[in-house]
């Protein structure tokens, strides 16, 4: 055992100082949600909407400029097909992955002015420095779990931020749900929620939990958490990377600003 202790000590500190200091969020090169500039759209073009496998993009006939496109980032699986399909440079790849929002409407970019910003919401006082999470996999592909597990690796070391995963829903403040909610997981999910003490909150992590993702519908997969549980924190992404998860959780705890409003990265 002393050999491993020595080994660990010799390795030094592996944890990133981000987000308190520095830029090392570990996501160099990682692509996020595509950005759209509808002003560049060609006449009558709807290539991006046709390329999207999850119907996240709607092109409104007869409209032009910013009103032309409506993008629901809650449906985006970050596949980049729209970026490749766009002939006019109106869709561009970006590193915008910090898409955690408290209001589902903030994931919708329909060209209009942002209407939901600065909305009053209950304070998380008492939980800001100590949040306990119960995770429930409601039918994910295991991509989200892989990134959630990464949160406790030495690089992100989630504990340092006062956020913990707990085995029992009785000790949990936040129910973090992944997956589109399959027919067989619906009941266990609801029973886990019922077992949580109040106040309790729900996070939809990953595009499947937000809207069903690529699996949506059919005979066995559901449509995400909408209509199943009251959601307090939405984070699309396929899967959301560990830094996106951390940003969303800290935003929820009022320790970081919400970066996305009206489907656009505003800060």
């Amino acid at each position: 055992m002393p050999v491993w202790t020595l080994f660990g000590l010799r390795k030094g500190r592996a944890t990133t100082p981000w987000p308190a200091r520095g830029q090392a969020d570990g996501q160099e090169g990682v692509l996020g949600m595509p950005r759209f500039a509808p002003d560049l759209c060609g006449e009558g073009c709807a290539e991006c909407a046709a390329a999207c496998p999850t119907r996240a993009i709607t092109v409104r006939a007869g409209q032009s400029g910013a009103d032309r496109l409506a993008v629901d980032y809650g449906r985006c699986v970050v596949c980049q097909l729209c970026v490749e399909a766009c002939p006019d440079g109106a869709a561009a790849a970006s590193h915008d992955w910090a898409y955690g929002v408290c209001d589902r409407a903030d994931l919708l970019n329909d060209g209009g002015a942002c209407t939901t910003k600065g909305e009053e919401r209950p304070s998380r006082r008492g939980f800001r420095r100590s949040l306990h999470i119960r995770h429930v996999d409601a039918g994910s592909c295991n991509g989200c779990e892989s990134e959630l597990q990464a949160l406790n690796n030495p690089f992100y070391n989630l504990h340092r931020l006062g956020v913990f995963f707990t085995p029992s829903p009785r000790f949990a403040d936040l129910l973090l749900v992944t997956g589109p909610v399959t027919y067989a997981m619906r009941e266990p999910l609801l029973r886990t929620y019922e077992a949580m003490p109040e106040p309790r909150w729900v996070m939809a992590a990953g595009t499947c939990a937000v809207s069903g993702g690529v699996a949506e519908g059919g005979y066995a997969a559901g449509h995400g958490l909408e209509g199943v549980l009251p959601v307090d924190l939405w984070l699309p992404g396929c899967p959301p990377n560990p830094a996106a998860l951390i940003e969303a959780l800290l935003m929820f705890l009022d320790r970081m600003p919400q970066r996305v409003e009206g489907g656009r990265l505003v800060r």
């Binding site: 496998p53 097909l81 039918g139 067989a184 690529v214 699996a215 519908g217 059919g218 997969a221």
Partner: peptide
């Protein structure tokens, strides 16, 4: 418990979408 019926979700898709 996690059966999503994924094989059925491929039906009617283009090969490009199916790869996603």
């Amino acid at each position: 418990f996690k059966h999503r019926g994924m094989e059925k979700r491929f039906e009617g898709r283009s090969p490009t979408h199916a790869a996603v």
